[in-house]
């Protein structure tokens, strides 16, 4: 894909250039949408709305940084907007979660797939999922997460701790079930 030509075509509103850009990034961006969404249907919606914004705002892409990173940021922001709209006053379950035992990463890697991990992430409450993704996958600080989700830094930290704990338990449980299945 000749990126510059495609961008110029998209700025002019040419459908062929837009289609080329979409096809080039659709699968990767759909992957992003999936782990930011509670289910596949919501992810499809995020992909749709996100790419609409990409084409509406492509004039503002100045070429600083990669186009892929720019599109990815737009899609993540779209997912965050949807989260904020759907969960304005989301009450978190405040029950204590027992800290999970440590997991043997190497052992798990051989038995688990990305789809399995996505399924686990999608089981998290929306706010835990957002905090965990933004911190662990995007590398944002708690201050940045707090601003994006309109929560305090302390809430971000506690949400992250709980999300991690839940995921550790789930991964372990998944690993345990998988191991038993393998043994059978």
């Amino acid at each position: 894909m000749d990126q510059q030509k495609v961008i110029e075509g998209c700025i002019k509103g040419k459908a062929r250039a837009q289609e080329e850009l979409f096809n080039h990034f659709a699968n990767e961006m759909f992957g992003v949408c999936i782990y930011y969404s509670p289910n596949r249907a919501d992810a499809e919606d995020t992909l749709h709305e996100g790419f609409l914004k990409v084409f509406q705002n492509i004039k503002s892409f100045k070429g600083e940084g990669s186009l892929k990173g720019w599109i990815r940021r737009i899609l993540i922001n779209t997912a965050l907007e949807k989260y904020r709209k759907k969960n304005p006053l989301y009450l978190l379950d405040d029950q204590n979660i027992d800290p999970a035992d440590d997991i043997d990463r190497d052992e798990i890697i051989s038995n688990i797939s990305a789809d399995d991990l996505i399924a686990l992430i999608q089981e998290l409450t929306p706010q835990y999922r957002m905090v965990f993704n933004l911190y662990a996958l995007e590398g944002l600080s708690h201050k940045e997460i707090a601003e994006k989700l309109n929560i305090s830094e302390g809430t971000s930290k506690s949400n992250l701790a709980r999300a991690r704990s839940i995921l550790q338990q789930k991964v372990k449980a998944y690993f345990y079930v998988s191991s038993k299945k393998l043994n059978v």
């Binding site: 699968n27 992957g31 782990y35 798990i108 990305a114 662990a136 995921l167």
Partner: peptide, 11 residues
């Protein structure tokens, strides 16, 4: 674990 699997994940 999650970063290794999910960053760059395509569907």
């Amino acid at each position: 674990l999650f970063k290794d699997y999910l960053v760059g994940y395509e569907s």
